[in-house]
């Protein structure tokens, strides 16, 4: 469904993505792991063009989204993102956050959008928080609202950028449970995370990045049990010890 070919990206003199190529199939849960600063988040943010790659191709169902022929909004509404810091709209309640984009982007009526939004809030276990403003929600609750907000657009792919990194430890599980629930529904998902156990459980494919390169791609079972490269071995030994 998504094909990335020879992607490169620099910030000033620092090249953060170097010749990245990978394929994401429909219905796959793809996890990108690697040390901090390895380019994981930048790669993810290139997929919905929050960052613009310097060179290479990103094919979305065969269409090159960097060619300039596709409207950038049309790509983004199909590749919604969940952020490390939630980024909820502070002037809207939980329900308004979820119902907003379907109304404005997909043209749903307020009633339709809110009905759908409420249903989604219930799936993430927050039906009773619909009328709360983000400032009244805990980190875990905020992130679950953010997930519902992204899902409300019924995107073809859901991008999750370190969704639990900013959470207190006791809230990590409630968010991971929601993500796991989604992963089982057959949605295509690309996830950047430091939660290795979780990555092993939910992923179909693991991509390991280091210093801007995509070093190793494998099934989670193979990757964790039998890493092929030195750098992956070293990374796993530091993180799992």
């Amino acid at each position: 469904m998504i094909k990335v070919e020879h992607l490169a990206k620099s910030f000033g003199n620092l090249q953060v993505l170097k010749d990245i190529s990978l394929t994401i199939n429909k219905g796959e849960v793809v996890t990108i792991i690697g040390p901090s600063g390895s380019g994981k988040s930048t790669l993810l943010r290139c997929l919905n063009l929050l960052e613009r790659p310097d060179s290479g191709k990103i094919l979305f169902d065969g269409t090159d989204i960097l060619s300039g022929k596709v409207k950038i909004e049309d790509i983004r509404k199909n590749a919604c993102m969940v952020f490390q810091h939630f980024n909820l709209f502070a002037n809207m309640t939980a329900l308004q956050n979820v119902a907003y984009a379907p109304r404005v982007v997909n043209g749903l009526s307020r009633a339709e959008a809110e009905e759908k939004g409420l249903k989604l809030l219930k799936t993430v276990g927050l039906g009773d928080k619909a009328d709360q403003y983000p400032s009244r929600l805990s980190g875990g609750q905020k992130q679950r609202v953010a997930i519902a907000r992204a899902m409300a657009m019924e995107p073809e792919v859901l991008l999750l950028d370190e969704p639990t990194s900013a959470l207190d430890p006791e809230m990590v599980k409630e968010v991971l449970d929601v993500i796991k629930g989604l992963a089982n529904t057959g949605i295509t998902m690309v996830l950047v995370t430091h939660e290795m156990g979780f990555a092993r459980d939910v992923s179909d494919v693991i991509h390991f990045m280091d210093e801007g390169y995509l070093i190793e791609s494998n099934s989670p079972k193979e990757f964790f049990a039998n890493p092929q490269t030195d750098r992956a071995r070293k990374f796993l030994s530091t993180i799992l010890s």
Partner: peptide
């Protein structure tokens, strides 16, 4: 004082810029 993250969130949902400015930025 409206943090940049909300801008990115709105972009990532495909919300047009002018709607985001009117509905999210302006009230805040």
């Amino acid at each position: 004082s409206v943090d940049r993250g909300q801008w990115e969130a709105s972009m990532s949902l495909g919300v047009p810029t002018h709607r985001f400015i009117l509905d999210v930025i302006l009230p805040q």
